[in-house]
Design a protein around this nucleic acid. Structure first.
Lengths: 196, 196
DNA sequence: CGGCTGACAGATTTCAATATCTGTCAGTCC
DNA sequence: GGACTGACAGATATTGAAATCTGTCAGCCG
């Protein structure tokens, strides 16, 4: 309620939007709600974001970027066995998505909605992730641990083959018993395929 | 219009239901429509199928079984290089699902709806398919072409890793350019992983 | 009898009126 | 002057009453 009469920045709007989304969910959250939470008129929000869709995308981007950053740590950690790095990276991706689906179901739903529509932001996110994977595969290829012709193609294949463990469409199945084992089996097969 | 005054069998009801579904889609097809197409009262339909859901499942089962049977041909064709058989089987699965999505969009939608709900029929279908894959992997393991500890686990992993190319949820992406290449890349990696 | 009908109750869907929301912009206020 | 407001038009969502559908069953008809 206290509007915190600081200047209205894009960042403050994003934080408020995230909170409103968390509370109301993507279906019921309106930009009037966001404006009310900030103690301003909704016209002011439109000064920073041209449309509601743009606002939603910006929130999702912020949220996805946190994951990208965490994974970047693992991807950058060169020098170690690339097989281990691929495993850890994929496991971290799975864990991150699963945790988000569990902790912030409403925000996760927002993200899923975006995935359905033509998700510019989601496309970028996926590109960033496969780029990280490509880097690990490339490193492994240089040391001779992996024997693939094109690291980028192999990385995209890895990403797609593990879709069931990071695509929001499958979120419901992430809590069922046995998923861990299924994940391990898929990753085993894939890492063996990289090493050949 | 001519009700074809043969006796009303489950089979005739299924055929009529499939036709009604093809015409109206899963959302608008009613059991009254089915009865009308057969020239009987809807009560008669309930004599053969306890609920509308049961009818829908039966139609889907019939439809899925056609795919299962086609693939069984490839799975049974023992003696040839198992690597080739896995590739052909997965390619045939992809082709079959893609063709169905294109030819019978309405029936395919019915199937997708079932997948969302607790699909008893779909579960069975998936079991049958992975059983076929298991058989191929087992054969390859016996000849020493494949080096996996458990064929059944490997088969399930193969199936899950290729979900993007047979799960109805991804149907929209099956017509985009480049899917063929992506499919090949994933299968390459997986088959290499089986051979190790 | 045994398969079929058609009227029925409760659940679900449709539809149109109403309310709310999105996005704009002339004007206010500091 | 530049950030903000609030009234507005058109688009979208909500609501509740009416229509349709599902599933049952007593009775009909061959």
């Amino acid at each position: 309620m206290p509007p915190t009469s600081e200047t209205l920045t894009a960042e403050r709007i994003l934080a408020a939007t995230e909170e409103v989304l968390r509370r109301h969910g993507p279906a019921k959250a309106t930009v009037v709600d966001v404006a009310r939470a900030l103690g301003v008129s909704h016209g002011s929000v439109y000064r920073h974001f041209r449309t509601k869709a743009a606002l939603r995308e910006a929130v999702t981007k912020r949220w996805l970027d946190r994951t990208t950053e965490v994974l970047a740590g693992i991807a950058a950690d060169a020098g170690r066995d690339p097989r281990l790095r691929v495993r850890e990276w994929l496991a971290a991706l799975f864990a991150a998505k699963r945790r988000k689906a569990g902790d912030d179901p409403e925000l996760f739903a927002t993200y899923s909605v975006l995935t359905d529509g033509a998700g510019e932001v989601v496309g970028t996110h996926i590109t960033e992730l496969t780029d990280q994977l490509t880097e690990i595969v490339r490193a492994g290829t240089e040391t001779g641990t992996f024997t693939v012709t094109d690291p980028a193609t192999a990385a995209r294949a890895l990403f797609q083959a593990t879709a069931r463990f990071h695509d929001p469409g499958y979120a419901r199945e992430w809590e069922q018993p046995g998923v861990e084992e299924e994940f391990e089996a898929v990753v085993d097969l894939l890492v063996r395929g990289l090493s050949a």
